[in-house]
Simulated scan of single mutants.
Amino acid sequence: MPVALYALAIGGFGIGLTEFVIMGLLPEVAADFRVSETAAGYFISGYALSVAIGAIILTAALTRIDRKKALLGLMILFIAGNLVSAVATDYTVMMLGRIIAALCHGAFFGIGSVVAAQLVAPNKKAGAISIMFAGLTISNVLGVPLGTMLGQAAGWRSTFWAITVIGVLAFIGIMLLVPARTGSEEKVLPGALRREFSAFRNPQVWLSILVTILGYGGMFGGFTYIAFTLTEVSGFSSATVPWLLILFGVGLFIGNIVGGKAADKHLGRTLLILLSALTVVLVVFAVTAGNPVMTIISLVLMGGFGFATVPGLQLRIMAYADQAPTLASGANIAAFNIGNALGAWVGGLTLAAGLGYTSPLWAGAAVTVLGLLVLLLALWFRGGEFSRKPLAKAKQELVV
């Protein structure tokens, strides 16, 4: 794989760290700004909302700009946002820093997916996308616990200073390693934005977005409240939870790589199998959550099957967006975050209804089944896509 993909992965690592590390630092941040932990939690929800907005608006705004320059500009935004967070003097400034950093998130992964795909042969596109997203998964496996430890030892601001440095390294890597334009990349012409929006005339693009929201949202619905399941049902201590989440992150990392390779061979079939398997895992997890050994196995598998869908879901929408995949790719990144919010909301409803700490897992399974049904509908419209190597012609003709 081209070394430029690893420069994109460094950017993905920094962005993933920005999104998730604050979860482990909320007590310190809340105490520093003298706000409740609920108010500090808005740094997480505010970030997610900004990701969804930025994925559409910034991607659209950057359609007429060379993609390498767009990525460099987004990394500057990322660096600035984390720098603001590191020096924030009050709650409002900190929130501003979170919003600035979040705005680049969706556009970076959306444009980065297109750049990653154009760097390799048609039969390796999903694998290339998975390498970029590997940075995001590694941030969960190693970055979040190490960032939390750094913040607890040297103050939470030190973590954001470290993320700022990672952003600078990613900027340098992209500047030096990512080509300005590959031979397959279409020249940016006037009317590019109109052409990008025209991709949404294809029903398969909207079906792909819906599969992303429901399929990924199902996993996140189960994961959002996993700490309660682990401590109240499985019997683990609170001190054990971070280490168990590392195992979940290992599942994310392995699933991302394996899912990318599988999607390059049979895209539709791979997504069908993965969503089916994820549904089964969520159900088994809910049924056996009282068994610590089964809980650990289910936790790893939930992360593995859940994130294994990501490269394929991203490739699918890019392929159906024909000659204008950039905005559709960004929209799908927004869809992942909408799925996060949907899954968390549905899982929260089950808890509020008094259905118990395994109820978010059942809710996640139900949401995933809906995603599976939408995928089956999309495959049926495609004409049995899952029965053969899908989109081979589309991937060969895809100009990215």
Score class of each variant (00 low, 15 high):
364 G>N: 13
341 A>Q: 07
327 L>V: 03
366 A>N: 07
333 I>H: 11
331 A>K: 00
359 S>W: 08
350 T>C: 00
385 E>I: 01
369 V>W: 06
390 P>I: 09
382 R>C: 00
378 A>F: 02
370 L>V: 13
369 V>E: 06
361 L>K: 12
379 L>M: 13
383 G>C: 09
354 G>V: 02
360 P>D: 11
339 G>Q: 10
366 A>C: 07
353 A>C: 00
352 A>E: 12
348 G>F: 08
377 L>M: 12
359 S>L: 07
360 P>T: 14
376 L>F: 13
367 V>I: 15
368 T>R: 12
370 L>C: 14
387 S>D: 04
340 N>T: 08
336 F>T: 09
344 A>W: 06
371 G>P: 02
370 L>K: 07
377 L>S: 06
332 N>V: 02
368 T>A: 15
321 A>D: 03
358 T>I: 14
355 L>F: 13
349 L>D: 01
363 A>T: 07
353 A>K: 05
380 W>H: 14
352 A>N: 13
342 L>P: 01
380 W>M: 05
357 Y>A: 12
324 A>Q: 05
363 A>N: 06
376 L>A: 14
323 Q>N: 12
336 F>N: 09
353 A>V: 01
356 G>K: 11
349 L>M: 14
363 A>D: 09
327 L>P: 00
372 L>E: 06
331 A>C: 07
369 V>N: 09
386 F>Y: 14
344 A>S: 14
347 G>Y: 09
344 A>F: 04
337 N>L: 02
326 T>V: 12
387 S>H: 10
321 A>N: 03
387 S>R: 15
348 G>P: 01
379 L>P: 00
361 L>T: 11
372 L>N: 09
374 V>I: 12
335 A>Y: 05
384 G>V: 06
351 L>V: 04
375 L>P: 01
339 G>A: 12
334 A>K: 03
384 G>H: 10
378 A>V: 03
372 L>F: 15
342 L>F: 14
382 R>M: 05
342 L>Y: 10
389 K>Q: 10
